[in-house]
Design a protein around this nucleic acid. Sequence first.
DNA 1: ACCTGAACACCGTTCAAGT
DNA 2: ACCTGAACACCGTTCAAGT
Lengths: 227, 227
Amino acid sequence: MASSTGTRDRLSRERVLAAAVALADASGLDAVSMRRLAQELGVVPMALYKHVADKDELLDGMVDRVLGELSLPELTGGWRTAIRGRVLEVRQIQLRHPWLRRVLESRATRTPLVLGHLDAVIGAFRAGGFSDALTHHVMHAFGSRIWGFTQELFDDGDPASAPSPEQAAALAQYFPNIAAVAAVAGHDDDTVVAHGCDDQAEFEFALDLLLDGFARLHAAGWVPPQR
Amino acid sequence: MASSTGTRDRLSRERVLAAAVALADASGLDAVSMRRLAQELGVVPMALYKHVADKDELLDGMVDRVLGELSLPELTGGWRTAIRGRVLEVRQIQLRHPWLRRVLESRATRTPLVLGHLDAVIGAFRAGGFSDALTHHVMHAFGSRIWGFTQELFDDGDPASAPSPEQAAALAQYFPNIAAVAAVAGHDDDTVVAHGCDDQAEFEFALDLLLDGFARLHAAGWVPPQR
DNA sequence: ACCTGAACACCGTTCAAGT
DNA sequence: ACCTGAACACCGTTCAAGT
């Protein structure tokens, strides 16, 4: 009572970002508008602009806040162990904060912790003896998987989007290959069209396939093509 | 003159979609709002809703319109040639319509031509003797690269976003690995931080690395892990 | 120094009316 | 059948004012 008399908790960058992350976790990224966030904090929209320059800076701040859950780069165990572990660690963050994916995809985020993760992975390749040229190439081949997600081909992550039996039948008629391959998905909660495919095993399969390729090129002494 | 008296060209779904694609090509995806598009067509916003149900359907229509530039699946030359050629063909579309990437990424588009492309690639794997289980796995490993783009790690595609010398120096200090590897990028228009890396050679490198991995698993008679 | 109120220039979309 | 006008419920952000 005493402290609430006109002295409602002061706003701060920390409070704003924490509320934004909580709002995105609870209600999805689309719910994170400056106006809605302000309302959540019991404040007028313009009050936020004293703590973040604009909405882009808010999103950047949210990214760095959740990437702060990352541990420091491991220096033991060789490049492959280090990179594999680190990417799977980012994946855990991704699973806790599903909105992270869209934020990283939609904008060219270059915040300190984003650059820090890239630098750590690049550093692990170089420490493992990869040439700078090969490192550059494998980083491109790594692509967005360095952030712990694969592109969902059929599934938008919403269980409610599973097709109806009629839709599934129509799909099987016009796209027999999709239907056949989707049917073999080995997941417990599967429907006719693959759903929830981006599980841990699937992600690790793709990750290891890439890492195998990188190891092979490295072992073969890959050099950039002449021109 | 005569025909313009009260009989301005009738709107149609085709005209709406063509204008939307042209607007996105010319001014970027953010310029494509229902209101702006209507203005471009000399019509009131609500007139569009007779031809597309809502904005999502407009975006789907735009996707299918540009994917219509794809040729039919090749049936000669083996799975690898077929898939490689088809993905590089999608990449050409992507280069002509840079907004396509964001539309495919941001939404779970499942239009006929999107499904048709997936079905064609899956069909090529199966025709090449891949088991359904392996096909399912490699499709996930393929990820968004099946749409002809790689995630840009540093570059948002805007030449104006190249860092200033001060920024580059700061980056080199805090992120030495990024700076070292970015510096070796073999592109003509390079700056200190890699820019324009997603060129044809880089894309084909990543694509071939994946295809190599797929071929190796297939040749080794890969079977799903027991559990 | 920090928060507020009113306003500006936008969005997508509904609903009732015009021709 | 097709287009219009006005309105609703939102956006991000600027600017001048309050305390």
